[in-house]
Amino acid sequence: MSDAPPQPIRVLVCDDQALVRTGYVTIFSAQPDMDVVGEAENGHEAVRAARRLRPDVVVMDVRMPLLDGIQATRQLAGPDTAHAPKVLVVTTFNVDSYVYDALRAGASGFLLKDSPPAELVNGIRTVARGEALLAPAVTRRLIGHFAGHVRPADTTSPVRQNIVDTLTPRELEVFRLIAEGLSNAEIATAMSITPETVKTYVSRILAKLHLRDRVQAVVLAHKTDLAP
């Protein structure tokens, strides 16, 4: 007997611009593996809809009335939330100062609002698989920008030392490359190992440091001054 087909990815679209929401819904609904279960035009509606509809992925705008996307993300995907959906934050270059806060709030990744449709669709699939969406080309620029605004931790801080003590030298090397925004394939090339080995290292690092995904790893690396 053949396996049952996978369930479609349940998507909630949150944006205060009706035209943008309509565009997203049209694009996502056309995908055979996606099901748009609802829309919201502000942060309060997004939180209520997400708790009622239990989507797999929430596509979240940053600037919205009543409750912005960062606060809504924190309520939906913060560290103390149960059954948290994956949140994919969309932003534009003129509001990219919010991205770091969004990642700290629990977002699984971000994309630029003018990303091509295929990139948005692949972004949803990526975060739905439990992977963080850190597009290397964009991420390096944004992480570099935000790193300059993050107060580095004392290099003798207990948190930093715990990371160094917990991870093997090889895992620490992978951890630092993750913080640079490198993909598994790029890390494999840099370290002359296979992508499968990198994937194993990443899983071990996340488990040892009790991190949900690569985004949290990036944030932690910068907060503890372990990023390159």
Rank of each mutant, 00 (worst) to 15 (best):
D96P: 02
V90G: 03
E45R: 07
V95A: 11
V150M: 03
A49W: 01
L142I: 15
V174P: 01
V20G: 01
N42C: 11
Q31H: 11
L76R: 07
A18G: 13
V89D: 04
L66I: 14
Y201K: 01
F28Q: 02
R10N: 08
R48L: 13
T22Y: 12
I205W: 01
E39R: 06
A221W: 01
P79H: 00
L211R: 03
K199D: 15
G123T: 10
E119F: 08
V215P: 04
A188M: 02
E186I: 10
P8T: 14
P5S: 10
F110H: 12
A221H: 02
L112C: 11
F28N: 10
L112Y: 14
T26F: 11
I187P: 00
A137S: 15
E173L: 10
T92F: 04
Q31K: 00
A217E: 05
E171C: 08
P8S: 14
D68A: 08
Q7D: 13
P117K: 06
G123A: 03
T156D: 15
D96V: 12
L172I: 06
R54C: 11
R63M: 13
L206N: 04
T224H: 06
D101V: 07
P65I: 06
S108L: 09
S183W: 05
R140A: 14
D68M: 09
P136C: 04
A49L: 09
T197W: 02
G23W: 06
L177C: 07
T81Y: 04
L177G: 00
S2M: 12
D213V: 02
V138E: 07
G78K: 09
A188G: 06
G23I: 06
R74P: 00
E119L: 14
S108Q: 14
L211Q: 04
A217T: 13
I205N: 06
T73H: 06
T126Q: 10
D225A: 15
S192M: 03
L111H: 06
E186W: 08
A179K: 02
P55A: 06
R74S: 05
V47N: 05
L226D: 01
M60F: 11
K223W: 03
L172S: 06
L211P: 04
V121I: 15
E196H: 13
L167H: 08
A227S: 14
I143Y: 10
L211A: 00
G38F: 09
A4F: 11
R141H: 13
M34D: 09
L103V: 07
L167G: 05
H210M: 05
L133K: 08
A72T: 00
V202E: 05
R140C: 05
I193G: 00
N94L: 07
V198E: 00
L88F: 07
V36N: 01
P32W: 09
A207M: 10
L211N: 08
V37R: 03
S108C: 13
S183K: 07
H222G: 09
V11Q: 03
A4C: 02
A105V: 04
P195N: 05
E39G: 10
L19V: 15
R176M: 12
T91D: 02
L211D: 00
